[in-house]
């Protein structure tokens, strides 16, 4: 109990402090959730309040729709974001790599990609600064996933969560795809959802790293630059392969599209060219299981997800690094809205 008295601002601050005291926050202030907030979220989705949407059997914990709603509100979501939060949660959960991700030393982040008209309706940023910050749905939908993990599963840093270094912005990597400037079909169409349907795709990633290449009009030159970063040895974790994907800036995407490359052509090119010499691998202490010839650093062409996001104001792109040996399942999740 604080001495907030009747000053409403002091009361609001005291409520935020109360949430800190309960151990409910990720370090930033949360919006205290009420039963009315949870009801407002539930009104947006066909899923019932007590439906279980995720379980960690080894922890004896499960998460319900209502619990996800409380955490979404706390993250700063508006109730109308909630169907996207649920789709994002489902997309993350059906990725095989999510089973151990929350406790892992790798400390991976969900990369959440939104397609469809919902991007404009909710103002989910897919243009300049798509990786953030500055846009409420992008920042809070990702954060909701993190709070569900923390409060729903009880996985907290330096307890059950054992991230060695963690990741900047771990719970805020949510962006729209820039469908308007992409030369290709939406990612969600690759993921099995019809064009024009709101959908979310997700992977767990360990980082993103930029490729800045504004000096060529050659598609192959840009692809060569991508392949070099994709073949970085530091990302190789032993076993069969490392993995990688691309969030292409619109300029790079259009350069490739105008040169006649389909998305699958880009994937195939990168699969074939992201290679390392086994001797280099050995010199870095990573020479086991890499064979004799050029070693392909990526698992397959299909396992190199390609997304388009950002502004067409400079020719730069991001490589992202999936967690573990995982490749994207290739399954997008349609956003389900309650029929009005």
């Amino acid at each position: 109990m604080t001495s907030a008295g009747t000053d409403l601002v002091e009361l609001a601050k005291a409520a935020i402090e109360y949430c800190y005291d309960q151990g409910w926050t990720d370090g930033l202030p949360v919006v205290p959730a009420t039963a009315a907030d949870v009801a407002a979220c539930l009104a947006t989705t066909p899923h019932p309040a007590d439906e279980i949407i995720g379980s960690q059997p080894h922890l004896g914990r499960s998460v319900t729709v209502a619990q996800a709603a409380a955490n979404a509100i706390m993250a700063g979501c508006k109730p109308e974001y909630f169907p996207v939060v649920l789709a994002a949660w489902q997309a993350v959960t059906h990725e095989r790599s999510s089973r151990g991700a929350w406790q892992s030393t790798s400390g991976p982040a969900p990369l959440i990609v939104v397609n469809g008209p919902v991007r404009t309706r909710l103002r989910i940023n897919y243009a300049g600064g798509a990786f953030g910050p500055g846009f409420r749905p992008n920042a809070t939908i990702g954060r909701a996933i993190g709070l569900i993990v923390r409060n729903g599963y009880g996985v907290r840093p330096q307890e059950l969560e054992q991230a060695t270094q963690g990741l900047p912005g771990r719970w805020s990597v949510c962006l729209g795809e820039n469908e308007e400037m992409s030369p290709w079909e939406p990612l969600s169409v690759v993921g099995g959802v019809p064009a024009g349907v709101d959908a979310v795709s997700a992977m767990l990633i360990r980082t993103v790293e930029y490729i800045d290449n504004r000096s060529t009009d050659s598609a192959e030159a840009v692809l060569t630059d991508f392949a070099d970063t994709l073949a970085r040895m530091g990302a190789y974790v032993g076993g069969p392969h490392s993995s990688g994907g691309l969030v292409l800036g619109p300029e790079h995407a259009q350069l490739l599209g105008n040169a006649g490359y389909r998305r699958t052509d880009v994937q195939q090119w990168l699969f074939e060219h992201a290679v390392r010499d086994p001797a280099e691998m050995a010199a870095a202490g990573k020479g086991e299981h890499v064979g004799d010839g050029p070693f392909r650093m990526l698992p397959s062409a299909e396992a190199i997800p390609i997304v388009v996001a950002g502004a067409a104001n400079a020719a730069m792109s991001m490589v992202f690094r999936p967690f573990g040996w995982a490749a994207w399942t290739g399954r997008s999740v349609p956003v389900e809205w309650k029929e009005q």
């Binding site: 039963a35 004896g60 914990r61």
Partner: peptide
């Protein structure tokens, strides 16, 4: 004082023995 704040840690009925 803040009884109306929803506890986000409360899940479905306990599954752990």
């Amino acid at each position: 004082m803040f009884e109306t704040i929803v506890d986000p840690t409360v899940g479905p009925a306990e599954t752990v023995e």
